[in-house]
């Protein structure tokens, strides 16, 4: 028997999952179900939508209404689901390439609308499914199969992008900082509006190997040693923040939600 959580929320007959040994995606996927469990949401009113890539295989393992769409389009499909049936809690699972390269336009517009969708970006800094090409979050000068001499593109800061585009709840955690990740996802789902949680994953197979980052364990240790919670960062000197990255809740500023605003139009017209 699997654990009670896994038994409850996973399609256990589809396990074990296809991800490589040590891939952080399984940790993040479990964290999502833990957040759903804590919130006690109505099980049959949850719809999980994904695009294409390693991360987007997650919904296939999760026992909800699940929608595995085309590359980059998860948020656009999810927008249709949510608009047509606002009673559904819609969660998007996407990757760094899926969400910010091919799906970048859909991402910023969903942020702008503040439609009630919680998007969790599994960021492994690489295109894993196709074998290790550099992505919009591959750090500058790191290598990918399509950046054999080092990547000269500047990486996206996904939470900053989402916050600037209008998302009303934004946070970042890592596969290592799993408890924080669960609480951010919980708060993201609770936020009535567009929430984005960047979950830094680890890809030991492609990104790790190409860039000599060691094993999955080494990569998680790196996350542990280099992450600074935003609440602690304000008390730290710039020198001590050198080479670190921030995690935690970056934005929590509720605004009117899109489908509720549309419902107001319907209600007003139906009164006329």
């Amino acid at each position: 028997m699997p654990s009670a959580l896994v038994n409850e929320y996973f399609r256990t007959n589809k396990l074990p999952q296809i991800w490589c040994p040590g891939c952080g995606h399984g940790i993040i996927t479990r964290a999502i179900t833990a957040a759903i469990d804590k919130l006690g949401l109505e099980r049959d009113k949850i719809c999980i939508v994904s695009g294409i890539g390693c991360s987007s295989r997650a919904p296939g393992y999760m026992d909800f209404d699940t929608l595995h769409t085309t590359h980059g389009r998860a948020i656009a499909f999810a927008t249709g689901v949510k608009m047509a049936n606002p009673d559904l809690k819609v969660i998007v699972i996407t990757g760094d390439g899926d969400a910010t390269a091919i799906g970048g336009n859909h991402l910023i517009h969903a942020c702008r609308r503040n439609i009630d969708i919680t998007t969790i970006v599994f960021n492994n800094n690489i295109y894993g499914m196709t074998g290790g090409q550099y992505s919009p979050t591959t750090p500058k000068f790191d290598k990918g199969t399509t950046a054999p001499y080092g990547n000269i593109d500047k990486a996206f800061d996904i939470p900053a992008l989402a916050a600037a585009a209008g998302a009303t709840y934004v946070g970042r955690s890592t596969a290592y900082h799993t408890q924080l990740l669960i609480s951010l996802i919980e708060n993201g789902i609770k936020n009535e509006g567009f929430s984005l949680i960047e979950a830094l994953s680890v890809c030991p197979t492609y990104y790790g190997r190409k860039n000599k980052k060691g094993s999955a364990v080494d990569m998680l240790e790196w996350q542990k040693d280099h992450a600074v919670n935003i609440s602690a960062a304000s008390k730290m000197t710039p020198e001590s923040l050198e080479g670190k990255f921030l995690i935690g809740e970056f934005k929590n500023s509720p605004e009117p939600e899109y489908t509720s605003e549309y419902q107001k139009i319907i209600d007003r017209l139906c009164k006329e």
């Binding site: 699997p2 654990s3 009670a4 959580l5 896994v6 996973f10 396990l15 074990p16 999952q17 991800w19 040590g22 891939c23 952080g24 995606h25 399984g26 940790i27 479990r30 596969a175 290592y176 799993t178 408890q179 999955a216 998680l220």
Partner: peptide, 15 residues
């Protein structure tokens, strides 16, 4: 262990 196992392969009993 359970929290970070990517494969859901280990868990604490009674939880």
């Amino acid at each position: 262990c359970e929290l970070r196992c990517p494969d859901f392969a280990i868990y604490v009993r009674g939880k």
